[in-house]
Amino acid sequence: MVELRLREVSFSHAAGTPWENKALDRVDLHLASGDRVLIVGPNGSGKSSLTSILAGLVVPTHGSCLLDGTPVADQPDRVALVIQNTRLQLMRPTVAEELSDLASDPGRVPSVVRRLHLAPLLTRRIDELSGGQQRRVGLAGAMARHADLIIMDEPMAGLDRQARGQLLEALASVPHESIVVVVTHDLDACRPILDHGRRGRILRIDSGRVKETTSS
């Protein structure tokens, strides 16, 4: 059972400098294995900052973000983040090399490839992939790493209907024991993700505060 808990999390960009900008204000959140969470909100509401904190890329200015009682920033092996511009994080020349480089256990790669229907792409060069294919490879990398917390930032942005369908199918194959957090502007396109886990939740964030929690 994986448990992610945010307590009174506040975050300011460039804290202590003239450019200080408060992005999050006392956010409390409790997620557990099987949760599928959509985070929605307008531009500048604090979504990106919350994503960075959940991924352990930045440490809260105040409060704590704990994964099973330990700061998430100290456990990079348990967290995976797939960013909108996925090309930036795919660093090996081909899909097969990327997955084998990321896998915690090389034996996991074939099952991930099978579940995400990536076999035809394995020998392809990363540069030749479409945006949707790159995001599927990013997600496959997260699954190959056996991450307990998978975060996707704007996964549907710029994808056509077919690519969105393939990505939703891929997200449905993420193991139930993982927590999946999706940050999006497009709630309707991502709503099917809520049905993939044990519990679906929609968090609306505005002006750095989580305003509303909807469970399904």
Partner: peptide, 14 residues
């Protein structure tokens, strides 16, 4: 910003 993203995400690699 992009370079910072790449550097930051490299922490997830083995």
């Amino acid at each position: 910003d992009e370079f910072s993203t790449v550097v930051t995400l490299s922490r997830f690699r083995k």
